[in-house]
Design a binder for these strands. Sequence first.
DNA 1: CCTCTGATCTTCT
DNA 2: GAAGATCAGAGGG
Length: 202
Amino acid sequence: MSGRLPRSFYTRDAVTVTLALLGQRLVRVEPDGTRSSGRIVEVEAYLGVEDKAAHTFGGRRSPRNEAMYRVGGTAYVYILYGHHCLNVVASREGEPVAALVRALEPEEGLAQMYARRPKARRDADLCSGPGKLCAALAITRPEHNLADLVDGPTLFIEKALPRGVGAGEVASGPRVGVDYAEEWAAKPLRFWVRGNRHVSKA
DNA sequence: CCTCTGATCTTCT
DNA sequence: GAAGATCAGAGGG
């Protein structure tokens, strides 16, 4: 069995962590021990107080974005248009940077995912978006915001063996839905596994 | 396959 | 009261 990613994985700079998450396995464990999981195939980096697209732009700290300021390895879960979204906080405490997990390739617990996402017609509909994957894995703000992915019991990330994703397999482009962010809108901070059919958009 | 539009609901002003 | 780090369905190619 593969091990969880340690604290030292998360306490590096944000773009390094964001890229390194590609290929790793996000795992949700139910109280009864049932696992749902998927390989991370699409992510975006959000870069702290200078990034106009980030919730922490300008250093605004609030109850909503508190998790962003915690140590790398903390989960930041927020609600947008009625859907949950999961971020993996990076770097050290006090530096509010994170990776938004945008898509997974489902691996374990497919039947449970379909049960939680009744609208899905095929595997590629299950986790191909930040709101979809949270629904599929039952990731919610009340349960998972501020959770520690290094030590927590119900949500964590396992190192994919034998390795993650090679540099040649990674594509990059502008982040989704941040056209309002002026010069930050065009920066290539979205990364995905090239050709994978589970990414939210090519 | 693609683009467009309405539903949705928390957060902060 | 307005603005989103979104989703799903409709309609056209």
